[in-house]
């Protein structure tokens, strides 16, 4: 699905010259890229290239050493994670981080926190507004569980779900925050081909429903088939960005992947 069919794509996320250092290690060096509204943007690169670090810098878990991250024009770098979420940017984690001892549904309900308002007083008095809000939170959480295909697991404990289900649950939880941009860190890692295909379908459905997806993925075939555009990181630098077919032929990219192996 080429983006050229859409009227002038609008830039939703722009990363401008982001650097991140850990002591002497430059995990990100002058990374610049932009994600357009409504696309699936792939972020690929060898192990340790800095993909997860970039996610962390964008979502407020890490501060950036320099550079800017703009979400719909507004600078979000070095903000608190919850402020980034509030502006419509949610994520999942490479090493799944669910609230393992809460039920699947409760996990998703936590995601609604940022879109609900009940205060301590409201919660204690349980006034009508609080009750209505609570009902709405629950209903939305059920809806999202269905959406990601976990409708039958709402009462299961998150930590006891199968691996693939946990990945889906993390997506549902992130969706509960109503993100414009959803960043997924290796969401199909460790899945078999059939499961990967189902996940790819889910991602397409998300795009159709108007979400923008930023996807870290090692599976090149999946990325090529799914993404509208991709960027390649290597040793903290962006070495290519563009349509999957072009990037694939890029000598620097080929060198990075093959070079890592030799």
């Amino acid at each position: 699905m080429p983006t050229s069919t859409m009227p002038a794509p609008e830039c939703l996320l722009s990363v401008e010259g982001v650097c991140k250092r850990f002591g002497g290690l430059a995990a990100l060096e002058d990374v610049t890229l932009s994600v357009n509204e409504g696309e699936i943007f792939g972020l690929i690169g060898p192990n340790g290239a800095g993909k997860t670090t970039l996610f962390n810098c964008m979502t407020g878990l890490y501060s950036v050493t320099s550079g800017a991250v703009r979400l719909a024009g507004e600078a979000v770098q070095n903000r608190k994670p919850h402020e980034v979420v509030k502006r419509g940017f949610a994520r999942t984690f490479q090493n799944i981080r669910l609230f393992a001892n809460m039920t699947a549904l409760e996990n998703v309900m936590v995601g609604r926190h940022v879109r609900s308002h009940a205060t301590v007083i409201g919660a204690i008095l349980r006034c009508r507004r609080t009750r209505e809000e609570e009902t709405a939170i629950r209903a939305r959480a059920h809806e999202l569980m269905e959406y990601v295909g976990l409708g039958h697991k709402v009462r299961a404990l998150a930590g006891h779900l199968a691996y693939g289900e946990q990945r889906r649950l993390e997506i549902a939880r992130a969706l509960a925050t109503n993100p414009k941009l959803l960043a997924l860190d290796e969401p199909v890692a460790g899945m078999n081909p059939a499961e990967r295909q189902q996940m790819a379908d889910l991602f397409r459905r998300l795009r159709e429903d108007g979400r923008t997806l930023l996807l870290i993925e090692h599976d090149v075939k999946l990325v090529m088939g799914l993404c509208d555009r991709v960027a390649v990181l290597d040793y903290g630098r962006k070495i290519a960005e563009g349509a999957p077919a072009e990037v694939r032929k890029d000598p620097a990219v080929i060198a990075a992947y093959l070079g890592g192996a030799t």
Binding site: P81, A90, F93, N101, M109, V110
Partner: peptide, 30 residues
């Protein structure tokens, strides 16, 4: 008071905090 707080948006935020502070923050909890 304690029971109503526990079974509310705030109680869930506390539980999330207890479970995983980083994930709680990344899910929009202050």
């Amino acid at each position: 008071v304690a029971m109503r707080l526990q079974d509310s948006r705030i109680g869930r935020a506390w539980a999330a905090l207890r479970e995983d502070e980083v994930a709680a923050a990344a899910m929009g909890i202050n």
